[in-house]
Design a protein around this nucleic acid. Structure first.
Lengths: 146, 146
DNA sequence: CAACCACTTTACGTTAACGTCAACGTCGTC
DNA sequence: GACGACGTTGACGTTAACGTAAAGTGGTTG
């Protein structure tokens, strides 16, 4: 319970406790269409902390979720450092002091305004795309006509 | 009419024809909170093509709009190369051949699905943030209570 | 047992998007 | 006419996020 919540939904719905599977680095890499190198790099950057059986890494559900969140964060333009910051604070939460927690709330508020702007940006960008497409189709229609 | 449409809205509403102002590189930089270096770099990358009076660059409304679109694109995670691609095709539109236009439509569709996924990512991310915040507030409350 | 996988570490290479610094020209003004 | 603010080009530096190549380890399969 001290890490990112894999079961957020499976608590609400009645799904199985999700088989206690593990994954190799290669499996995980194929699942998310990244290279093993990328996954190792994320570990080095403090975003993942898989188990070790001897030399080789063993990933659990928790790690898979973290990777998923990381990649989602990246698609939204967050740096790995930003993502790590949130993950670290989240992990430190249960025994966190008040100052740390307030800092976390600040960061969250920050991300939230960021998301809001992104939503606005997307809306505006979609309009631009609409506009460009309409014009392109007009020109095309004229070409077809002649 | 052969460039990005500054007046997309001012045609629809009744706003003034927007003073035919010009801007220095420094003005533009302050407006958008970037450095002049950045603006020169964008020009070098083919995203801007300001007028020249002797050595010095002179930016018009058209350039300001392009810069705005470029920065918006960046916030959405597009590379400068991608942004340039769209701008170039847009500029080439009026006398574009059918193949070019179809290619443009493809790119647009591509960006569109990208936007859709971003929207979904944002929704999911917002839920995560909500979840984290709730937990953080719970822990805080427990601390205040004791 | 050899030949293949899949995995590991170490280390150097690469790309995008600028930052920074030097060296210079051009105003306005004190 | 020196000074400061702003502009220019050119070149090298920097950071993030991996890619890539070398060299080794550990299982299993023909």
């Amino acid at each position: 319970m001290s890490t990112l919540n894999t079961e957020a939904t499976s608590v609400a719905n009645g799904s199985l406790p999700r088989q206690r599977r593990t994954y190799s680095i290669g499996e995980l890499a194929r699942m998310f269409e990244v290279t093993p190198r990328t996954i190792r790099f994320y570990e080095q950057e403090g975003l993942l902390a898989p188990e070790r059986r001897g030399q080789t890494r063993i990933y659990h559900e928790k790690d898979r979720v973290r990777l998923k969140l990381t990649l989602r964060g990246k698609r939204l333009g967050f740096s790995l450092a930003e993502i790590r910051e949130v993950i670290e604070m989240y992990d430190a939460m249960p025994d966190g002091n008040a100052r740390q927690l307030k800092r976390l709330l600040e960061i969250l508020a920050d991300k939230r305004t960021n998301m809001e702007r992104q939503l606005e940006d997307i809306r505006l960008m979609q309009r631009e795309l609409d506009d460009v497409e309409v014009r392109a189709r007009e020109v095309l229609a004229r070409l077809d006509q002649d």
